[in-house]
Design a protein around this nucleic acid. Structure first.
Length: 184
DNA sequence: GCCAACGTTGGC
DNA sequence: GCCAACGTTGGC
């Protein structure tokens, strides 16, 4: 299953391993799956597609931060979810380039994400570098996700649903991709 | 704009 | 450590 998805998403195991070898983090070699939310007004999937890679900065929730510090591994894949739109849902897929990096936005005194507690030696907040893999062929709306029985257990629909970064099971990830007709 | 469901803060 | 007050998220 993982290998199939990896081919679908253009991430060969060799590519994942080369990313991983650059990472200081250890893992058991399996790929983790996530869902990451963004308001289009804040960062849109179109912008993500143009950027190819970006630092996912500005997360100011400890649970979400901890996922980026110790949960995410290089090569993990995630669903790109747009909230605060007329029809919220999953619009694309990305991967983790490098987790657990100090969030520079916490040090920017003029920025909205500035945190006076943060310093170079004590970053307080952490982020992950992420890369774009593609748009879903047919974006899967929240309404559709709710209608799929196998996805009833998703954090998105339950306690913790407001979290902007959530773990997703491989089965859930795969069902969403399949229901969306894969990538464009 | 409303409001449920949280997370965070701070007095005690 | 409790908990009320407050702030935020995000669907609708």
């Amino acid at each position: 299953m993982a290998n199939t998805e990896s081919r679908v998403l253009g991430m060969s195991r060799a590519a994942k391993n080369s990313e991983k070898s650059k990472s200081a983090t250890q893992d058991d070699g399996t790929i983790g799956f996530w869902l990451i939310k963004s308001k289009p007004s804040c960062y849109s999937i179109e912008q993500f597609a143009r950027d190819k890679k970006t630092l996912w900065t500005g997360i100011r929730n400890y649970q979400a931060r901890n996922f980026m510090m110790t949960g995410m591994k290089s090569g993990d894949q995630f669903l790109f979810y747009h909230s605060n739109v007329e029809s919220p849902g999953v619009f694309g897929v990305g991967y983790v380039v490098k987790p657990n990096q100090a969030d520079p936005s916490a040090l920017d005194q003029r920025g909205e994400q500035y945190d006076p507690r943060a310093s170079h030696d004590h970053p307080v907040w952490f982020c992950a570098e992420v890369g774009y893999l593609g748009h879903l062929k047919h974006p899967l709306t929240l309404e559709e996700i709710k209608s799929i029985k196998e996805l009833n257990g998703m954090a998105l629909l339950r306690k913790g649903r407001r979290l902007s970064i959530q773990p997703v099971s491989e089965a859930e990830f795969s069902i969403i991709l399949k229901s969306a007709g894969g990538l464009k």
